Measured scan of single mutants.
Amino acid sequence: ILQTYRAIANYEKTSGSEMALSTGDVVEVVEKSESGWWFCQMKAKRGWIPASFLEPLDSPDETEDP
């Protein structure tokens, strides 16, 4: 089962193997590399994304803190 994550910042791809993101995009993580790059898919797009640009979809938003 794939894990679902949300983009927390815009990411512009710098090579053909990467995938561009916009803040709020929801992606499915296909593979996690120890290098800190994750292979993700979103609709018909697939590519590598730095893991630091993603957060788990089920994590609470910062605005929901008590």
Rank of each mutant, 00 (worst) to 15 (best):
I1Q: 02
L2T: 15
L2C: 14
Q3D: 13
Q3L: 08
Q3I: 10
Q3E: 15
T4F: 14
Y5W: 06
Y5S: 03
R6I: 09
R6F: 03
R6G: 01
R6T: 05
R6C: 05
R6H: 03
A7V: 11
A7G: 04
A7M: 05
A7F: 03
I8H: 05
I8W: 04
I8D: 01
A9K: 15
A9H: 09
A9I: 05
A9G: 13
A9W: 04
N10Y: 04
N10W: 01
E12H: 11
E12Q: 08
E12N: 11
E12M: 07
K13V: 09
K13R: 09
T14S: 11
T14C: 09
S15Q: 12
S15G: 07
S15E: 11
S15K: 14
G16W: 08
G16Q: 15
S17I: 14
S17T: 12
S17R: 10
E18Y: 04
E18T: 09
E18A: 06
M19K: 00
M19L: 10
M19W: 04
M19T: 03
M19H: 02
A20G: 07
A20W: 04
A20T: 14
A20M: 07
L21Y: 01
L21C: 05
L21S: 01
S22Y: 05
T23A: 15
G24N: 06
D25W: 00
D25A: 03
D25K: 02
V26P: 02
V26S: 04
V26H: 08
V26Y: 07
V26E: 08
V27N: 00
V27Q: 02
V27W: 00
V27E: 01
V27S: 01
V27K: 01
E28Q: 09
E28L: 05
V29T: 02
V29A: 05
V29Y: 01
V29S: 02
V29D: 01
V30W: 04
K32I: 04
K32G: 02
S33C: 11
S33Y: 07
S33K: 15
S33F: 07
S33I: 04
E34D: 12
E34A: 12
E34P: 14
E34H: 09
E34L: 06
E34G: 11
S35T: 15
S35I: 05
G36R: 03
G36E: 05
G36L: 02
W37R: 09
W37E: 05
W37G: 02
W38F: 08
W38V: 04
W38Q: 02
W38L: 05
W38A: 04
F39L: 15
F39D: 03
C40E: 00
C40W: 01
Q41H: 06
Q41G: 03
M42V: 09
M42T: 13
M42R: 12
M42G: 12
K43H: 11
K43P: 08
K43F: 06
A44Q: 15
A44I: 04
K45L: 09
K45V: 10
K45F: 05
K45H: 10
R46V: 08
R46M: 07
G47N: 01
G47T: 01
G47M: 04
G47A: 04
W48G: 00
W48D: 01
W48Y: 07
W48M: 03
W48R: 03
W48H: 02
I49F: 05
I49N: 01
I49A: 11
I49Q: 02
P50G: 02
P50L: 03
P50E: 04
P50D: 04
P50V: 00
A51E: 09
A51V: 04
A51F: 06
S52P: 06
S52I: 09
S52D: 13
S52Y: 08
S52F: 06
F53I: 15
F53M: 12
F53S: 08
L54H: 00
L54C: 01
L54G: 00
L54K: 00
L54Q: 00
L54D: 01
E55R: 09
E55N: 04
E55V: 12
E55S: 07
E55T: 09
P56K: 12
P56Y: 05
P56A: 06
P56C: 06
P56D: 04
L57Y: 15
L57H: 11
L57K: 07
L57A: 13
L57C: 15
D58F: 09
D58Y: 10
D58T: 11
P60G: 14
P60A: 14
D61M: 15
E62C: 12
T63G: 14
T63P: 12
T63C: 13
T63N: 13
T63I: 14
T63D: 15
E64I: 12
E64H: 13
E64V: 14
E64G: 11
D65Y: 10
D65V: 13
D65P: 15
P66K: 05
P66L: 06
